Simulated assay, not measured.
Amino acid sequence: MTQRPYVLLSVAVSIDGYIDDATPQRLKLSNAADFDRVDQVRAQSDAILIGAETLRRDNPRLLVNSADRRAARVAAGKPEYPLKIAVSARGDLDPELHFWHHGGDKLVYTTQAGASKLGDRLAGLAEVVALGDDIDLGALLDDLGRRGIARLMVEGGTRILTQFLAAELADELQLAVAPIVVGHAAAPRFLGPAAYPQHRMCLAEVTRIGDVALLRYLPRQSGDAAHEC
């Protein structure tokens, strides 16, 4: 059986659980030291995954910014940048987004309907993989395992993070809590409604990074294991 990658969810939230505000400009919740920590986590990953909604809203490059970390990857026999992955059910992705024009290889997981839109639109920019009529995250992880991806970093947004946690497919959650209150009803939250597993996660580590609190959870560990971790 193919070994699925280790799945690490990485997200910064406000005290009241938002990942952004409702303004057109992106809200920077992390501080400089925490952004550098995220860059390190990216450098340690084989692939970085993002959902289509976040891709459209934030237009990120999703790179390893440190030249030293990229050089260390190359010295270890890895590509300079992790594989960048977008997930889009509808295939509504603009080929002019920064994501496609920076970094190394790109991969898009979509549906059969989405693939019919993206095949020509992203020709020469990304490999497009159709998973069927719907996005099956288990099938997505199986495909990444067959590609040799051992460590997957998931950076959002709400829908993707919700799906991974609700399906019990996350091995680790790194939650950076910023000392900000957003309070905008229209702003995106960390998680949406779903049938989540009803157990206490294992809190493996708490770290202070300036004014940010980093909480490291292991979602798969529950019961006695959660209390002993």
Rank of each mutant, 00 (worst) to 15 (best):
S88W: 06
R69V: 11
L191C: 13
L161M: 14
V177A: 03
G138Q: 14
Q174W: 13
A176E: 11
G124Y: 07
D120N: 13
G132L: 10
F190D: 03
W100F: 15
R189G: 05
I85H: 00
L83D: 00
H184G: 12
N65L: 15
K106P: 01
R146Q: 14
R70V: 04
R151C: 08
A123L: 13
L165D: 01
D105R: 15
D92I: 05
M153G: 05
S116I: 12
G132E: 13
G145S: 11
E172F: 08
T162Q: 10
R147D: 10
D133W: 07
A194E: 12
G103D: 06
A186C: 03
E155W: 02
V177C: 00
V177S: 02
P197G: 12
T158V: 11
K106D: 15
L131W: 04
L140N: 00
D68G: 13
L165H: 05
L97E: 06
G77M: 09
P188D: 07
V154Q: 04
L169P: 00
N59T: 02
A166F: 11
F99Q: 02
A195S: 12
A170I: 02
I180W: 01
H98D: 06
L140W: 03
Y81C: 06
K84M: 01
A75Q: 10
P193E: 10
L141K: 01
A187K: 05
L93P: 00
R159Q: 10
R159N: 08
E172Q: 15
Y81L: 11
H102E: 15
P197I: 11
G51W: 00
A170C: 07
D58G: 04
L152P: 03
Q112M: 13
G119C: 07
D143R: 10
E96H: 12
R189N: 04
F190A: 07
